[in-house]
Computed example of a mutant assay.
Amino acid sequence: MGFDPIAIVGRGCVFPDALDPDAFWDNVAARRCSLSPVPDGRWRLPHRWAMGTVDDHLDRTWNDVGGYVRDFGTVFDPTGFRVAPEEILGLDQLFHWVLYGARQALREAGHEEGSPRTGLVLGNLSYPTSAGTAFAEHVWLSGGAPGLLRGAARDRPDARNRFSSGLPAHFAAR
Protein backbone atom coordinates (compact mmCIF):
# COMPACT_ATOMS: atom_id res chain seq x y z
CA MET A 1 0.00 0.00 0.00
CA GLY A 2 1.56 3.29 -1.07
CA PHE A 3 0.96 6.80 0.03
CA ASP A 4 2.16 10.24 -0.88
CA PRO A 5 4.49 11.79 1.67
CA ILE A 6 3.29 14.90 3.43
CA ALA A 7 5.08 17.71 5.20
CA ILE A 8 3.73 19.84 8.02
CA VAL A 9 5.05 23.27 7.21
CA GLY A 10 2.79 25.54 9.22
CA ARG A 11 1.01 25.51 12.56
CA GLY A 12 -1.69 27.62 14.13
CA CYS A 13 -3.75 27.39 17.28
CA VAL A 14 -6.11 29.08 19.70
CA PHE A 15 -6.01 27.80 23.28
CA PRO A 16 -6.65 29.31 26.68
CA ASP A 17 -3.62 31.52 27.44
CA ALA A 18 -2.08 30.71 24.05
CA LEU A 19 -3.14 32.41 20.84
CA ASP A 20 -0.21 31.02 18.85
CA PRO A 21 1.88 27.82 18.82
CA ASP A 22 4.90 29.39 20.54
CA ALA A 23 2.81 30.63 23.46
CA PHE A 24 1.21 27.18 23.70
CA TRP A 25 4.61 25.50 23.81
CA ASP A 26 5.83 28.00 26.44
CA ASN A 27 2.80 27.08 28.59
CA VAL A 28 3.46 23.35 28.17
CA ALA A 29 7.19 23.71 28.92
CA ALA A 30 6.45 25.81 32.01
CA ARG A 31 3.74 23.33 33.12
CA ARG A 32 1.36 26.27 33.30
CA CYS A 33 -2.28 25.50 34.06
CA SER A 34 -4.59 27.56 31.88
CA LEU A 35 -7.81 26.64 33.65
CA SER A 36 -9.71 29.46 35.33
CA PRO A 37 -13.10 30.25 36.82
CA VAL A 38 -15.86 31.13 34.38
CA PRO A 39 -15.40 34.71 33.12
CA ASP A 40 -17.91 37.35 34.19
CA GLY A 41 -20.86 37.48 31.80
CA ARG A 42 -20.18 34.06 30.26
CA TRP A 43 -23.26 32.56 31.86
CA ARG A 44 -26.55 34.32 31.21
CA LEU A 45 -27.83 33.68 34.69
CA PRO A 46 -26.45 34.72 38.05
CA HIS A 47 -23.54 32.57 39.22
CA ARG A 48 -25.39 31.64 42.42
CA TRP A 49 -28.27 30.15 40.40
CA ALA A 50 -25.99 28.04 38.24
CA MET A 51 -23.88 26.59 41.02
CA GLY A 52 -24.94 23.52 42.97
CA THR A 53 -22.90 20.97 44.86
CA VAL A 54 -21.72 17.47 44.01
CA ASP A 55 -24.77 16.13 45.88
CA ASP A 56 -27.22 18.82 44.72
CA HIS A 57 -26.57 19.41 41.02
CA LEU A 58 -29.92 18.79 39.32
CA ASP A 59 -30.10 21.31 36.46
CA ARG A 60 -27.00 23.06 37.82
CA THR A 61 -23.27 22.67 37.78
CA TRP A 62 -20.94 22.15 40.70
CA ASN A 63 -17.80 23.35 38.96
CA ASP A 64 -17.11 26.68 37.24
CA VAL A 65 -13.51 26.02 36.24
CA GLY A 66 -12.67 25.53 32.58
CA GLY A 67 -10.36 26.47 29.75
CA TYR A 68 -11.55 29.85 28.47
CA VAL A 69 -10.01 31.70 25.54
CA ARG A 70 -9.52 35.34 26.47
CA ASP A 71 -8.46 38.45 24.54
CA PHE A 72 -8.99 36.83 21.16
CA GLY A 73 -10.73 39.95 19.84
CA THR A 74 -7.46 41.85 20.14
CA VAL A 75 -5.72 39.61 17.58
CA PHE A 76 -8.43 38.52 15.13
CA ASP A 77 -8.81 40.41 11.85
CA PRO A 78 -11.77 39.18 9.74
CA THR A 79 -10.48 40.88 6.60
CA GLY A 80 -8.37 39.30 3.89
CA PHE A 81 -10.27 36.03 3.63
CA ARG A 82 -12.28 34.95 0.59
CA VAL A 83 -15.40 35.57 2.67
CA ALA A 84 -16.80 39.00 3.52
CA PRO A 85 -15.89 40.17 7.05
CA GLU A 86 -19.60 40.73 7.80
CA GLU A 87 -20.31 37.08 7.03
CA ILE A 88 -17.45 35.92 9.25
CA LEU A 89 -18.48 38.16 12.14
CA GLY A 90 -21.99 36.64 12.06
CA LEU A 91 -20.54 33.23 12.84
CA ASP A 92 -19.60 31.72 16.18
CA GLN A 93 -16.17 32.45 17.61
CA LEU A 94 -15.24 28.86 16.84
CA PHE A 95 -15.20 29.77 13.13
CA HIS A 96 -13.03 32.80 13.94
CA TRP A 97 -10.58 30.61 15.86
CA VAL A 98 -10.31 28.16 12.96
CA LEU A 99 -9.75 30.93 10.40
CA TYR A 100 -7.17 32.55 12.66
CA GLY A 101 -5.30 29.28 13.17
CA ALA A 102 -5.37 28.52 9.44
CA ARG A 103 -4.00 31.99 8.69
CA GLN A 104 -1.21 31.46 11.25
CA ALA A 105 -0.27 28.14 9.68
CA LEU A 106 -0.21 29.55 6.15
CA ARG A 107 1.91 32.51 7.23
CA GLU A 108 4.32 30.23 9.09
CA ALA A 109 4.66 28.31 5.83
CA GLY A 110 5.40 31.56 3.98
CA HIS A 111 2.03 31.95 2.23
CA GLU A 112 -0.90 34.33 2.44
CA GLU A 113 -3.34 31.92 0.79
CA GLY A 114 -3.69 28.19 0.38
CA SER A 115 -2.94 26.33 -2.80
CA PRO A 116 -4.48 23.21 -4.38
CA ARG A 117 -1.94 21.12 -2.45
CA THR A 118 -2.69 22.70 0.91
CA GLY A 119 -4.42 20.56 3.50
CA LEU A 120 -5.96 21.31 6.87
CA VAL A 121 -5.81 19.14 9.97
CA LEU A 122 -8.11 20.49 12.65
CA GLY A 123 -8.58 19.41 16.24
CA ASN A 124 -12.01 20.37 17.56
CA LEU A 125 -13.82 18.90 20.56
CA SER A 126 -17.27 19.83 19.20
CA TYR A 127 -18.70 21.19 22.41
CA PRO A 128 -21.84 23.30 22.18
CA THR A 129 -20.95 26.88 21.31
CA SER A 130 -22.51 30.16 22.40
CA ALA A 131 -23.82 30.99 18.94
CA GLY A 132 -25.03 27.42 18.38
CA THR A 133 -26.95 27.63 21.63
CA ALA A 134 -28.38 31.02 20.64
CA PHE A 135 -29.57 29.53 17.35
CA ALA A 136 -31.27 26.58 19.08
CA GLU A 137 -32.86 28.90 21.63
CA HIS A 138 -34.19 31.12 18.85
CA VAL A 139 -35.72 28.14 17.01
CA TRP A 140 -37.35 26.78 20.18
CA LEU A 141 -38.67 30.11 21.43
CA SER A 142 -39.85 31.46 18.07
CA GLY A 143 -42.03 28.38 17.63
CA GLY A 144 -43.52 28.14 21.09
CA ALA A 145 -42.98 31.37 23.00
CA PRO A 146 -41.97 34.16 20.62
CA GLY A 147 -42.76 36.76 23.29
CA LEU A 148 -39.65 35.61 25.15
CA LEU A 149 -37.42 36.76 22.28
CA ARG A 150 -36.31 40.26 23.20
CA GLY A 151 -33.89 42.78 21.72
CA ALA A 152 -31.15 41.29 19.59
CA ALA A 153 -32.48 37.77 20.27
CA ARG A 154 -35.36 38.52 17.85
CA ASP A 155 -32.90 38.31 14.96
CA ARG A 156 -32.27 34.73 13.96
CA PRO A 157 -28.59 33.78 14.41
CA ASP A 158 -26.79 32.33 11.41
CA ALA A 159 -27.99 28.73 11.05
CA ARG A 160 -24.47 27.56 10.23
CA ASN A 161 -23.57 28.08 13.89
CA ARG A 162 -25.28 24.80 14.74
CA PHE A 163 -22.58 22.83 12.91
CA SER A 164 -19.60 23.05 15.27
CA SER A 165 -17.92 19.81 14.19
CA GLY A 166 -17.10 19.77 10.49
CA LEU A 167 -18.30 23.09 9.12
CA PRO A 168 -15.54 25.28 10.62
CA ALA A 169 -12.89 23.19 8.83
CA HIS A 170 -14.90 23.23 5.59
CA PHE A 171 -15.38 26.97 5.93
CA ALA A 172 -11.62 27.53 6.46
CA ALA A 173 -10.77 25.30 3.51
CA ARG A 174 -13.11 27.34 1.33
Rank of each mutant, 00 (worst) to 15 (best):
Asp158Arg: 09
Ala153Thr: 07
Gly66Gln: 01
Pro78Asn: 03
Ala84Gln: 09
Val38Thr: 12
Val98Arg: 03
Cys33Gly: 11
Asn124Gln: 08
Trp43Asn: 02
Glu86Cys: 00
Phe81Ser: 04
Ala105Trp: 00
Gly52Lys: 04
Glu108Met: 14
Leu106His: 02
Ala153His: 09
Leu149Val: 11
Glu87Met: 08
Ala30Ser: 15
Asp92Tyr: 02
Arg162Asn: 10
Pro46Glu: 08
Glu113Pro: 00
Arg60His: 07
Leu35His: 09
Gly90Met: 07
His170Val: 13
Phe3Asn: 10
Pro39Ala: 05
Gly144Val: 05
Ser165Phe: 10
Asp55Gln: 12
Pro78Gly: 05
Cys13Met: 13
Cys33Tyr: 07
Glu86Met: 04
Thr61Cys: 14
Gly101Asn: 01
Ile6Leu: 12
Leu58Cys: 10
Ser36Glu: 08
Phe24Leu: 15
Ala102Val: 12
Asp4Leu: 09
Gly12Phe: 00
Asp26Met: 07
Gly114Ser: 10
Val121Pro: 04
Pro16Arg: 08
Thr53Arg: 03
Ala7Asn: 07
Pro128Arg: 04
Arg107Ala: 11
His47Cys: 06
Gly41Trp: 04
Asp17Val: 03
Gly119Trp: 08
Arg60Pro: 05
Leu149Lys: 08
Leu125Gly: 14
Trp49Tyr: 10
Gly147Asp: 13
Pro85Phe: 01
Thr61Val: 15
Ala172Glu: 05
Pro157Gln: 02
Gly90Leu: 06
Gln93Asp: 13
Ser36Leu: 03
Ala131His: 10
Pro39Cys: 08
Pro37Lys: 03
His96Phe: 06
Val121Ala: 13
Arg31His: 13
Gly147Leu: 06
Pro46Met: 03
Trp140Val: 13
His111Asp: 06
Ala145Pro: 02
Arg107Trp: 00
Ala109Glu: 00
Leu141Ser: 08
Pro157Val: 03
Leu125Ala: 15
Ala145Asp: 12
Phe3Ile: 11
Gly147Ala: 13
Gly144Leu: 11
Ala152Met: 05
Ser130Ala: 13
Gly123Thr: 03
Asn124Ile: 14
Tyr127Arg: 05
Val28Phe: 06
Ser126Val: 05
Phe72Glu: 06
Ser126Pro: 00
Leu94Asp: 02
Glu87Gly: 01
Asp155Phe: 11
Thr118Leu: 04
Leu89Tyr: 02
Trp62Tyr: 15
Gly151Val: 05
Val69Met: 05
Ala30Gly: 12
Asp40Asn: 07
Leu89Asn: 12
Ala134His: 06
Asp20Pro: 04
Gly101Glu: 02
Leu94Arg: 11
Met51Arg: 11
Gly41Ser: 04
Asn161Ser: 10
Phe15Asn: 09
Cys33Lys: 11
